[in-house]
Amino acid sequence: MTRSPPAHRRTALLIGGIALGMFGLGFALAPYYSQICAALGIQVANAPRTRVLGPPSAEPVARPVTVRFDANVNGNLPWEFAPVTRKLEINTGSLHNATFRVRNLGDRTLTGRAVVNITPWQATPYVDKTECFCFQEQPLAAGEEAELTLRFAVLPDLPSEYSNITLSYTFMNIDPDAVARPHGHDDDHSHDDHHSHDKGRDQAHETAHEPAQRHAE
């Protein structure tokens, strides 16, 4: 089995050649890298999250969906809040209105802010709200009552497995003193909202609210 030095040289050159080839392969990967990724679909993972939500367009085929409305009040706000429109059978791609009614049961002026939670959460990017009371703060004097409107469309490219959508709104007290106060189980409403509600979140409300939540968790 022991072989002569020329045989060693031949084997050594062969293996050295493999090493040099691998060095070259490293550089060859640079130009081919993006093609490989494109061919294997490696960089498409972010695609759903980066989609741009434009105005509802009518081009994909509209299909019927059921939208239900739900209303809640966080425990720190003595308000009454209920959906007037409870359920809508609509077609995707067209605008619809839903109404809610809210009343201040307390004895002083309070300012609330509504946040939305959409179920199933996968449908969240497909609910396009063009006008919503949740975009603004809502002051109510003692005993005052108000009618709130929501104008929205469900985008036609909503994945076909979702045909029932629930929009659940919760009114929160935005007064930092009200939220900093430790409170019990009512916190549970607000947890999910962090994942789903989208536009124009009140920063002061959030920063004031978060420490209280951490403790609760």
């Binding site: 022991t2 050594a12 050295g16």
Partner: peptide, 20 residues
């Protein structure tokens, strides 16, 4: 490392005692 590896491979392929 590459040089040492070349050496080890060549040794194992070519230098085993007869019968090994």
């Amino acid at each position: 490392s590459v040089l040492a590896s070349i050496n080890i491979i060549v040794t194992i392929l070519n230098m085993r005692a007869p019968g090994m």
